[in-house]
Design a protein around this nucleic acid. Structure first.
Lengths: 380, 380
DNA sequence: CTGTTAGCGCCTTCAG
DNA sequence: CTGAAGGCGCTAACAG
């Protein structure tokens, strides 16, 4: 214990933490291992002592290493008495099986899966990660996280890091122009699953949203409500999703016989607040749109800002649901992000069982949630 | 390649993926490894072939294993010519150094850090994870993710999984009643950093928010604006943060000479929409509060729903910023979530350098962002 | 039911 | 500058 150290803390930001229960304060504890089962044997002097190994436990328990191994591997034939003796020794030594060594022995593949996302602060990716993690945890697989920060050039390097850790599979949000560099890995038995956008030049499963027809659904709903002049605003980020959604918008307007839809498309790709500006542009037209569709949540924010007090006049539907959209009565094209991650995980588990099956292109469903803003009729 | 397999896909949800660039369609490619540098040597028949090892590369390059090792470890003395030969052989065999084996040799500790969060779908935790990942990535450390799903009983099991993977350090959002079970690990050299709430009965660094005085700041601002009847709504989740924020609220009211603040505290812990109900309760009082403070983003959503059209009458400030709060003119007590993760990572890196230093209790700053809702004066 | 042998892929000695 | 042996911690394969 380093309790005696806790009193000589210098600085400004640092204070001793104070536990809320049991012992009045950690700093006040006696310098043994208070609260623990007091195994002793652990001299407080040596902070860095090497961990106990199988052999150590075996020695203490008076058995062979293999027997200890059997106890910790679970399903082996070990006499109850022996098992107890081994467990006692293991607890005394704080033994923990080393998964690194175990994995090495098992063909050098770890029990992990790598997830490569783009901009790590984008909550969409994290929801996907969450869905994945939940499913993988059920199967005792842990998830390693890495981010490309949406830099195409870093994808291969990031992936490499994960491969060197011998992940059993890779789930990636493709950002590089080409994923063919992964073909060799796939052949070597590391499945690749793409999320949000498909891979290019690589045979891989893909889990994407129903972008195109999902957007078309929303536009159709507006058309049904009497709208003809419908704006579309999107800041292109992920090219694939963006293209698909734009295509869906056009599909629906074409169906409706609207031929000049291009006039109401605004697809800026500059920084700053292009979406807000785009929305203002549209609203300033001599014949402004009576409804606006946003292609992603970033664009939604811009449009909502631009609409301001005119929120009750112009219909609006945005792709991607968001916190409080419910409370604010904003209609959206929504989907289950967790489900996306779950599907990725499930596909991945299937792949591990059968690496040779054909690649699947899975679309996660989307649906329009009517909350008011999307049901406003055209002004005229 | 399994291209020929792609045509006989059965089902409903599955379609062949179509690349956007270069080759018109993966399914139409010749069955070689199109697009690659065509290293050949990799028979498409054997999907599961074992990976090349250091020894394989050495054999092909006509050198010893150690030489290859030196090349891949970077800073060794290797003749340029030898190096080239080794690299050529490595590329041909698609060699990748096995970090598992490497870590095993290096004292059995991996180059990873484990992050244990609570509810994995809570974006707060993910923002923290994001901040951590960015900082750790700079140091070549990867992050392993695990979640307790806010189940106190699962914490130890989850932590154990990570420890078995020999993470170099643990960052956890404590949820169990007691973290003393980690004391042994700390002594064995695995630092533990707590995020959002401090550990109990364990000497560990903690990175938390400036919960108490941050909340007090907001209440003081309301008081300054003339408010005396100020409600506080919070659904208790994380006990520590909740207690601290409530205490801050009381601090400020006490300072202002308000003695009956308890009447305006609503701290439900049932499921459903307790926060919204709480807000309605407050508004239905004979002398309703002229301002409401929410203790977390969940509570904020409830209050905003409850306020509805009366948003312009009653002042409101919520703890935690959220998407579009800006666009909606909602004042909040905000902080930099990424910074929290960054601080955790930095502390952790320090700890790895100096495992014996005193534990630090670090508070990440909070500040009130005035956007309108919090600046509404009292009605009377 | 338990122990022995050998080796997973790599790297630290220690010699050339 | 390069190579040969041995072992990190664990576990298949084979005995007993």
């Amino acid at each position: 214990m380093t309790c005696h150290l806790e009193r000589r803390i210098p600085g400004t930001l640092c204070r001793v933490s104070e536990p809320n229960t049991r012992s009045p304060a950690v700093a006040g504890e006696p310098d043994g291992d208070g609260g623990l089962e007091s195994v002793a044997l652990t001299p407080p002097t040596r902070v860095t002592r090497s961990r106990a190994t199988l052999a150590d436990v075996a020695r203490l328990a008076g058995v062979s290493a293999k027997t200890v191994s059997r106890v910790f591997s679970g399903n082996a034939y070990v006499a109850d008495q022996t098992r107890d003796r081994v467990m006692a020794a293991a607890n005394r030594l704080r033994f923990r099986p080393n998964d690194l060594a175990r994995s090495l022995r098992h063909g050098g593949v770890a029990n992990t899966v790598g997830f490569v996302m783009g901009d790590i602060t984008n909550q969409f990716y994290f929801q996907v990660a969450a869905g994945m993690e939940r499913e993988l945890a059920k199967h005792g697989i842990t998830m390693i996280l890495a981010a490309t920060e949406d830099d195409p050039g870093s994808e291969e390097r990031v992936v490499e890091t994960l491969l060197n850790q011998r992940v059993r599979a890779l789930v990636i949000v493709p950002i590089a122009a080409d994923q063919s560099y992964l073909e060799g890995e796939r052949q070597l038995g590391t499945p690749v699953i793409c999320v949000d956008r498909p891979a290019r030049n690589l045979v891989a499963d893909a889990i994407v949203l129903r972008n195109r027809s999902g957007t078309a659904d929303a536009v159709r709903a507006l058309v049904t409500n009497g709208h003809r002049r419908i704006g579309f605003i999107c800041s292109p980020g992920g090219l694939y999703t963006h293209e698909q959604r734009l295509a869906g918008y056009r599909d629906a307007l074409r169906e409706a016989g609207v031929t000049d839809s291009r006039r109401w498309e605004r697809l800026k790709d500059v920084d700053g607040r292009p979406d807000e500006e785009s929305a203002r542009e549209l609203m300033a037209l001599p014949d402004p749109p009576t409804a606006i569709v946003a292609g992603n949540n970033h664009a939604s924010a811009g449009v909502i800002r631009a609409l301001g007090e005119r929120r009750s006049e112009i219909a609006f539907i945005g792709f991607d649901d968001f916190e409080l959209a419910d409370a604010l009565g904003i209609s959206v094209i929504a989907y289950d992000t967790l489900e996306m991650g779950r599907r990725a995980a499930l596909r991945l588990l299937e792949r591990l069982d059968d690496p040779t099956g054909p690649p699947q292109h899975i679309e996660v469903d989307t649906h329009v949630i009517a909350r008011g803003s999307g049901e406003i009729p055209p002004a005229s």
